[in-house]
């Protein structure tokens, strides 16, 4: 029979997660659906909502630390986050819906490891680190090294994400996020593309690109990024970057869209972003 365990401290959390069949319950917006459809059958649900280390938003200069059990709506409303990581706010605004954002968390969205995890895109772009904690102690893992495949992460048994750390970053980033889906709210992306560009006199100083739902994991588009670094953002350069981006993803056909469409839309959105950044 399923047990519900509410823990108050990290020590209790570690202890509860060590048990056979224990499952961390964060917002529950994915987990409870999976449980009801029989996809997962945990023996106990461990609720860390009361553990202080996993809650709240702290700043240190330009950097941010967000406890992973902080509801998304709280992050969305935070002035500190809007100033330091505006693209995260842009993305959370179109994640789920009001009801989902009032329950859902970054920890849940990341640990779930969906190829379509919206929050992974801005965190990849800001090069966030995840503070993991477990029986063997704590460790930091870059978001880019956290996902192993659909539903699979580097988290070991008994380990959890304590916080997301977003380092201080350029103030002059031109941000971009576009999620392709059937409707705005509650949609699982067919493809999502995010970007940050620093442009000076028509030349790209630095460009970061990330894509979701077009590969087994959300990922950075490194070859397009490298091609763009230091180049003037003219038509040919932008078109070539779009082609590189389209070549870098490995989408699949599924109920939402075909692989060919996902590849094409990846390139088109990268082009759209760069054209906007060149004109800014």
């Amino acid at each position: 029979m399923l047990r519900y365990v509410r823990v108050d401290t990290e020590a209790e959390l570690l202890d509860a997660l060590r048990k056979d069949g224990a499952q961390l319950l964060s917002g529950g917006t994915d987990l409870l659906v999976k449980m009801r459809s029989g996809l997962v059958r945990p023996k106990s649900l461990v609720d860390p909502a009361a553990v202080a280390e996993l809650r709240g938003i702290e700043t240190a200069g330009g950097a941010l630390r967000i406890g992973t059990a902080t509801p998304l709506s709280e992050i969305l409303a935070s002035k500190e986050v809007r100033e330091r990581a505006p693209l995260l706010v842009d993305v959370l605004r179109v994640l789920g819906c009001v009801q989902i954002r009032n329950r859902g968390t970054l920890g849940g969205n990341l640990a779930n490891a969906s190829p379509a995890a919206d929050s992974a895109i801005p965190l990849l772009l800001y090069e966030a680190n995840l503070e993991l904690a477990g029986g063997d102690g704590a460790r930091n893992v870059p978001v880019g090294g956290f996902f192993l495949g659909p539903g699979r992460t580097v988290l070991q048994h008994g380990e959890y994400i304590r916080a997301v750390r977003i380092p201080a970053s350029r103030q002059n980033w031109i941000p971009f996020f576009h999620k392709v889906g059937r409707r705005r709210a509650l949609t699982i992306a067919i493809a999502s593309i995010g970007g940050l560009a620093a442009v000076s006199q028509g030349r790209a100083t630095e460009v970061r690109l990330a894509a979701g739902s077009v590969a087994p994991i959300p990922l950075r588009l490194k070859s397009a990024e490298e091609w763009l670094a230091g180049r003037a953002l003219d038509r040919e350069t932008i078109q070539h970057a779009g082609a590189l981006a389209a070549g870098e993803v490995s989408p699949i056909d599924d109920v939402r869209a075909t692989a060919a469409y996902r590849r094409a839309v990846t390139g088109d959105l990268v082009v759209r972003f760069l054209e906007g950044a060149a004109a800014a």
């Binding site: 519900y4 917002g27 917006t29 409870l32 659906v33 709506s73 009801q99 009032n102 329950r103 509650l186």
Partner: peptide, 22 residues
């Protein structure tokens, strides 16, 4: 499964899907 909002209630003042809250 949290898609339709018919079960919306306020939990400590915030709208939530009561089908996704234990």
């Amino acid at each position: 499964e949290g898609e339709c909002g018919a079960c919306t209630v306020l939990l400590d003042g915030l709208p939530v899907n009561s089908c996704l809250v234990l």
